[in-house]
Design a protein around this nucleic acid. Structure first.
Lengths: 209, 209
DNA sequence: GTCTATAACGTGATAGAC
DNA sequence: GTCTATCACGTTATAGAC
C-alpha cells in the first residue's frame, strides 16, 4: 500500500514540491505542451526557483522521465526474476500489480510511449529494458516450458505483447472506451479489476498445447 | 489496395501538399511539438501559404484530426455492419485490415490517443463512435451468441479491449519492443503479419464456453 | 533560498510587394 | 497564389534585490 505515499511523495523540500508538480503535469500533457509556468504554479513556487533547482525544463524532464521509466520497469523486474514462483503465478501477479499501478497513475503509459516515440532515446539503452525482460528468469521458465512441450510454441514477444496489450491498452484508450458505454470512472475501475482474473485465464488459454 | 494512394494523396494542389505534410508531422510529433514552419518546409512551400489556405495551425490540425479519426473508424464500421459475415469472419477481417493499416501508418494510434487524452473532445461526440461500435450488427451478433450459450458470457467491452489491445498495442509500443529483441523493421512486420492469424485464434479461445 | 523584473528567443500570424 | 520581411506574443531562462 505504498502507492498513495508514492504519488504525493514527501512534499517537504522545495525541490520535491517541484518534482512532484513536474511529474504530474508532464505525465498529463507531455513535454512539448507543458509550460514551466504551469509546473511552478502547481508547485506553489516561483518560476525562477524551478531554474534555480533544475537548471532547465529539459533537465527537469529528463529526471522525471528516468524515474517514471524505472518505476514502470520495477514492477516487471521484481516479478519476472522471482525464482520461487511458477509461470502462472508470475502472470497473475504481474497483471494484478500493473492494474493497481495504472488505476492510480493512468497517465503513465501514454506519457512514456509518446515521449519515447521519436527518441531512439539514450534512456532506453541506459535503463536496458532488454536485459531486464529478455534475460529474466521468467523468459527462462517460458522457454523451458516450450521445450518440454508443456505450453504451445511461440515467439516470447507475442506473449509479452499480449499480456501488456490486454493489460495496458484499456488505460491508454480509456477516453474512447468511456465514451463507448456511458461508463462512470467507478465502473471503469470495476472492469479493470475484473481483468486481474480474466486476463491470466485468457493467457493460459493461449498457452494450451 | 488503396492504402498507397491514401498515404501520398494526390499532391497536385498546394492545399493538398500542405495537408499531406501536416498529416505526416502532426501524426509523428503531435500538435504541441509541431511547428508550422516544419509543415511548410515538408510541403515545400512558404510559411505564409499555410495561413493563407488554412487560417491557423489549429484549424489545419482540426481538419487532420477529423480525417484521421474518421479513417480509423472507417475500417471498423465497414466490417462491423456487414450483415453477410459471421462473427468469426468479422474478427479475422478486422484484425487483418487493422494490421495492414498500421503497418502503413504506425503513428496513427498514438497520435489519436494522445490528442484525445485531455480533450473530452467535441470530435468524439461528433463522430459518434458509440453509435458506430455499440449499435453495430457485430455487437448484435455477439450478444445473440451469448444468449444462445454459444460463446462465453462477458461484457462486450472486455472483448473490444482485447481485440484492439492485442492488435494495436504492439504498434504503439514498437519502440520498446524493437529494443527488446534486436529486431529489424522487417522482422517486426513479419511478426505483425503472423498476428493476423494468431490473434483471431486466441480470441476464439477466449469465447469457448 | 526566494522573489520581481526583464532579457533572449522561438513561434504563429500578417502586411505588402510581386 | 506565392513570396520576403516583420510583427506580436508567449515561453524559457537569467540578473539582481532581498
Amino acid at each position: 500500500m505504498k502507492s498513495q505515499k508514492e504519488l504525493s511523495k514527501t512534499d517537504h523540500s522545495t525541490e520535491d514540491k517541484i518534482k512532484n508538480a513536474a511529474r504530474l503535469i508532464f505525465h498529463k500533457k507531455g513535454y512539448a505542451a507543458t509550460r514551466t509556468r504551469d509546473i511552478a504554479e502547481e508547485a506553489g513556487i516561483n518560476l525562477a526557483l524551478l531554474n534555480y533547482y533544475f537548471r532547465s525544463k529539459e533537465k527537469l524532464f529528463d529526471i522525471i522521465m528516468l524515474e517514471s521509466l524505472q518505476g514502470f520497469l520495477h514492477s516487471i523486474k521484481e516479478v519476472f526474476n522471482n525464482e520461487e514462483t511458477s509461470l502462472e503465478n508470475k502472470i497473475e501477479t504481474l497483471v494484478s500489480n500493473y492494474i493497481d499501478l495504472l488505476i492510480e497513475q493512468p497517465d503513465i503509459p501514454l506519457f512514456l510511449l509518446s515521449e519515447l516515440r521519436n527518441n531512439p532515446n539514450e534512456l532506453v539503452s541506459k535503463i536496458n529494458i532488454k536485459q531486464v525482460l529478455m534475460n529474466s528468469y521468467f523468459i527462462k521458465q517460458f522457454k523451458h516450458a516450450m521445450n518440454d512441450g508443456i505450453i504451445a510454441t511461440m515467439n516470447p514477444l507475442h506473449f509479452i505483447m499480449n499480456i501488456l496489450g490486454m493489460t495496458v491498452f484499456p488505460f491508454i484508450a480509456s477516453p474512447i472506451l468511456k465514451s463507448l458505454s456511458d461508463i462512470s470512472p467507478a465502473d471503469f475501475e470495476d472492469l479493470m479489476n475484473q481483468r486481474k482474473i480474466l486476463i491470466p485465464n485468457w493467457i493460459k488459454g493461449m498457452l494450451i498445447v
